[in-house]
Amino acid sequence: MNTVVNDPTRTVLSRVIGWFAKGWENSAEADMIASLDDFTIQSIAHDCGISPDQLVELAKAGPHAADEMLEMMRALNIDPAEVEMRLRAQFRDMQINCAHCASKGECRRDLANGNAAANFAQYCANSQDLNALRASPDFLAG
């Protein structure tokens, strides 16, 4: 069994982004996106609960554009699988925020050196959501 497919933290959105990236490894993403018809883009976006423009932007960002969000949740003792299961739309919106984040360098440094929990509120677009989640025992990792 493929563990990536069974990983509860891999959302439909991240799988779609992964599909785009894998299919376009040897091509320019913009060219590949342009080759899809509007109906296909709209259908995929609808299935993911996002706009077609967001889908195109996320595909260009790549399959790992929101990996920091999952790492940040773990650094804050938040269970990403529980959040995704109970708050699917909020989880997706947080992934989109993370994918578009301009503070990835600072985030990655803090995650790597163990300072993320102390510093994330200064730069993370998801800080309010993350603080609310870690204040709720229902979303804390076991």
Rank of each mutant, 00 (worst) to 15 (best):
I17W: 00
V56T: 04
Q95C: 06
I44G: 04
V83N: 03
M94W: 07
S51Y: 07
A102G: 08
H46T: 14
I41F: 00
T40D: 11
E68D: 14
D47T: 14
D38E: 14
Q90N: 13
A28D: 12
Q90E: 15
D38R: 15
S43Q: 12
E29K: 09
M85E: 14
D79P: 07
I50K: 06
P80G: 06
A102Q: 14
Q95N: 07
I33H: 03
D31E: 15
Q54D: 11
G23H: 12
A99C: 02
A112I: 01
L36V: 11
D79S: 12
D38Y: 07
K22A: 13
R92D: 05
S103A: 15
D67C: 04
D79G: 09
M72E: 07
F91T: 09
C101Y: 02
A61E: 05
F20E: 04
M85Q: 14
M85I: 11
M32N: 11
F20S: 07
K104I: 11
L55V: 11
Q95W: 01
E68L: 12
R74T: 14
E71M: 04
I78Y: 04
G105D: 12
W19I: 07
T40A: 08
A75D: 08
R88Y: 01
A30F: 07
L36M: 12
E68F: 07
N113L: 03
C107T: 06
A99W: 00
E71C: 05
L111T: 09
A66F: 06
A75F: 02
S27D: 09
E71Q: 10
A28E: 12
M85K: 15
P80F: 01
I96W: 01
